[in-house]
Design a protein around this nucleic acid. Sequence first.
DNA 1: CGCGGCATTGAGGCATATCAATGGTCGTGG
DNA 2: CCACGACCATTGATATGCCTCAATGCCGCG
Lengths: 257, 257
Amino acid sequence: MSKTGRRDVDLPGAFAALALSPEDIIHEAAGIPSTQVSRKRDIIVAGEHCETVFINHAGWLFRYKILHNGNRQILDFILPGQVFGLQACLFESSLYSIATITDVSLSMIPLDMIERMAERSPELVKALFRSATCEAAILGEHLIDASRRSARERIGHLLLELFLRLKSAGLVEGMSFEMPLTQELISDAVGLTTVHVNRTLRSLRDAKLIAIDGSNVTILDFEALSRLCGFENGYLGEAARKHPTGMNPPRRATADD
Amino acid sequence: MSKTGRRDVDLPGAFAALALSPEDIIHEAAGIPSTQVSRKRDIIVAGEHCETVFINHAGWLFRYKILHNGNRQILDFILPGQVFGLQACLFESSLYSIATITDVSLSMIPLDMIERMAERSPELVKALFRSATCEAAILGEHLIDASRRSARERIGHLLLELFLRLKSAGLVEGMSFEMPLTQELISDAVGLTTVHVNRTLRSLRDAKLIAIDGSNVTILDFEALSRLCGFENGYLGEAARKHPTGMNPPRRATADD
DNA sequence: CGCGGCATTGAGGCATATCAATGGTCGTGG
DNA sequence: CCACGACCATTGATATGCCTCAATGCCGCG
């Protein structure tokens, strides 16, 4: 149900293929030296054009936008193994900015090189397409997060998402992972106040669902956390199948069925 | 600055290319008869696979997902001229459902036909890519809506977005357009209660920003509405042109400082 | 004529925002 | 080694925007 057909990981479809590091690209771009960028630097600035596609080998980045009132909305986090920057290439000017959180190691691939490669390899095209689609899927999840979930749900969901994505990248140890995010970054990602993020994290800790030690996060009770924030394992299909024809499902079934 | 390079419409980059109806496809698929579907029908159901790409010629649809608690989140609306269903093709199973709001007229194009055409036409590939990217951009805007904007802002933003998208499809008359949405659909799209949507619409009407007569919506004061909901005029190209190097204001210059 | 879908309005409660202050940690310079 | 400032986490008190529950009205349709 949640297979992507390519990397058969046991993850919700949305995440499985995103971190897909198109080996084709990486291999092909082997000649390109990787670039080091230090933390808190802008890589792509909204409004500027860009002719480069990036591959992130190590470190965290995030995609964001500054709103008219000065608020910052973080659209998603970019983890190791991810490709980014295609959107900026396709538009005259990038819609969003991308900045580093930690020190990162990147490959910068000129757009025309991608194009040349794409002509020879339909596989590559599909891989890129899939990656773009996955990005959209994650955005969709975040949209649901922001508009329909409570603070606990949003943060729990974010933690689970990061855990699973890092897991698929082989970057977790047991149930723990490194999360180099300040509470301010989290708040800008989930659309809450730093104050409230703090309180919510505390309440999750008090509930023994997670543990936090510095930047190290441990999921203490995966099951309970998933339940709490509606991270349905295999969330595709279940609800939909119950209402095969109906777009008018018993929505607002106030009580959870 | 907000041009897409293809259809030089005076619209925010995000919308400009979305309604791009790849003439290539339409022309090529001329042999395919268009199908009529009546209102309130599911076209694609989340969790099922799909081997067809659709072009919407007339009518409104929407992409949605039912959450575990029975809530329905609407991700976006699909207007005339739009292509949809590619995501469902790329995943083993579709992440979202798509249903009609009004009666619609669709072209259904088998995936393998798309693939064959794509091999011959890099242009088509680019067009599809651009369309997918635009979809993601709209999702991004909706994400910002939901997480950072007030009720008035969200609804104002939705109305402006629909207005501009319909305008680019030639479906507005002056400042008015037909909006076949119930308040419940609106509430599921912007993440509010129907009750609150109702109150907010009233307050927008009282403020003489919009007028509503049945399903006919009129933007009375485009400027004021844009300002109200942070629909940066810059977005429309104006301010963007004023800040040729960047649409992002001078705040928060580097990631976070 | 009655019923179902949709819009509208009121009253009260809760989750999150806002404002304000404190404490801990780390790097840096004296 | 200590003093200091920058940055981040934490906590309390209060305000408010949106939700929830509940009721009424309107209109089209069988």
